[in-house]
């Protein structure tokens, strides 16, 4: 589209800018403020420079949370993206069943996140939950409130249940937009199904796959509610991921400084990685 240059367009953008700025800039300024100050109570603050950031780098607890978070995100991406793609490939492209499938698959995405946690909480209870009882009946000792491995297994299974559909829907939309002529040409060229996937479908899905990976990375890195309701971060700190750690510190104690420094670094990590993905995506589109 040939866009005309007109600075008066700022009036149209102003309401949005004001609301988002109010919500984003003011709090962020507060956070930055706290991160470079120290208090001994009574609302008196002293400049403390980068001391909180330095402490952050040395803090074992936070390092552990970061490690857990990275592991969690890696596992979740490794499962959800290929799984979602595979499911999308198996879905019919046209027909009466398509909307039924799509609606049912979209349901987990609309469940309030605490209900997701509760659902799986109930499911996984060792004696009275469907999942818990079944696994124990198979002879595997399973109790997610006591055993860290069981807790991780349950948390990951819950996230796969919750978010894989997002990948499925994105990939499905991408697949459906490939014109029939490509499949026809492949038939005429005598290509086998694997060749069709490798040379036609996968290249054409690059854009949606990038978006899926970006979104899943971002959202899994910020995960809070589902995990807090399911395991509370436990057993112990087995499932204490970054957001949980941060909220504990921010709302729990009076350590505003460290919490603020933590917030800034956290935000920066996500921003940086997302910016990388975003540029990659834009460059792909330009090609």
């Amino acid at each position: 589209m040939n866009k005309t240059f007109n600075n008066k367009a700022w009036w149209m953008v102003l309401p949005v800018f004001l609301v988002v700025a109010f919500n984003a800039l003011v709090p962020l300024m507060t956070v930055v403020n706290y991160s470079v100050q120290e208090t001994f109570g009574n609302n008196e603050f002293f400049w403390s420079g980068t001391i909180w950031f330095q402490q952050l780098l040395d803090n074992d607890q936070i390092r552990a949370s970061l490690g857990r978070q990275i592991a969690f995100t890696a596992v979740v991406l490794a499962i959800q993206v290929p799984l979602g793609l595979a499911i999308a490939l198996c879905m019919p492209r046209k027909g009466p069943w398509v909307s039924v499938c799509l609606v049912l698959m979209a349901l987990p995405l609309l469940v309030p996140w605490n209900v997701v946690g509760s659902m799986w909480n109930i499911m996984a209870l060792p004696d009275i939950g469907l999942l818990g009882k079944t696994i124990n009946a198979l002879g595997i000792h399973y109790n997610y409130t006591r055993d860290p491995v069981a807790a991780w297994f349950t948390v990951i299974l819950m996230d796969v249940w919750h978010w894989t559909s997002l990948v499925v829907l994105l990939c499905y939309a991408g697949l459906v937009s490939i014109p029939d002529a490509y499949y026809q040409a492949a038939k005429i060229d005598g290509a086998r199904p694997w060749a069709v996937f490798r040379y036609i479908q996968l290249p054409k899905l690059k854009h949606v796959l990038t978006i899926a990976i970006l979104l899943r990375f971002m959202d899994s890195f910020m995960i809070y509610t589902e995990v807090i309701v399911l395991t509370g971060g436990g057993p112990g700190s087995a499932t204490k991921f970054l957001s949980i750690d941060l909220v504990q510190k921010a709302l729990g104690g009076f350590d505003l400084g460290p919490a603020a420094a933590f917030s800034i670094v956290y935000f920066l990590i996500i921003l940086l990685t997302s910016w990388l993905f975003y540029t990659l995506m834009m460059r792909n589109e330009a090609n």
């Binding site: 600075n7 367009a9 910020m222 996500i270 921003l271 910016w275």
Partner: peptide, 26 residues
Amino acid sequence: RYRFLGDKHLFFWLLSNRMAPPAVFV
């Protein structure tokens, strides 16, 4: 429809808020 001063930066800044962890803002 329009190009204006700072439009690309504004757009990206808006998008970046989608990437903000709620935990940071609580």
